[in-house]
């Protein structure tokens, strides 16, 4: 593994089920994440994914790749284009820095509208919990 290495992409279908299940599993009952009618009334074309689900998916992407012994130390994300039902998000990652067993990874999730999420994660690879 080297700086500049690119992680294999993860393609996720942004289904209505994923958006609603993620919102409820993260205990986020904001109507814009489950009620299309109310979401539209607030000016959104449809329901959209909440930030906790996006955060969780980025976390999953990283630990899927680095394995169960990798430990996530920091994760910072910024949201851009919303994830609406029917879209597809492709998560990609690049290793920005390697320092001993500590990796800094840049992650981008792109959907049909643009960049949904950009973020940076710091992981300890194969480390103790």
């Amino acid at each position: 593994m080297r700086t500049g290495d690119v992680l294999p992409p993860l393609t996720l279908a942004i289904t209505r089920t994923l958006i609603v299940a993620g919102a409820i599993a993260s205990r986020d009952y904001q109507d814009v994440h489950h009620d299309p009618e109310l979401a539209r009334r607030k000016g959104s074309p449809d329901i959209f994914m909440n930030i906790l689900t996006t955060n969780g998916l980025v976390g999953r992407y990283l630990t899927d790749h680095f394995g169960p012994t990798a430990v996530l130390r920091k994760l910072s994300i910024r949201l851009g284009a919303p994830n609406y039902p029917g879209d597809t998000m492709v998560l990609t990652g690049t290793i920005e820095q390697l320092d001993g067993d500590t990796a800094t990874v840049r992650v981008i999730g792109t959907n049909g509208i643009g960049a949904h999420v950009t973020g940076t994660a710091v992981l300890t690879l194969g480390g103790e919990r």
């Binding site: 969780g56 999953r60 169960p68």
Partner: peptide, 23 residues
């Protein structure tokens, strides 16, 4: 919900996914 199958999150020594922190 998130399709996360990381074995660290199940079994007798399970930890919570770190990204659940806010939840």
């Amino acid at each position: 919900a998130l399709g996360d199958t990381n074995p660290a999150y199940s079994g007798p020594d399970a930890i919570a996914p770190p990204t659940m922190l806010q939840a």
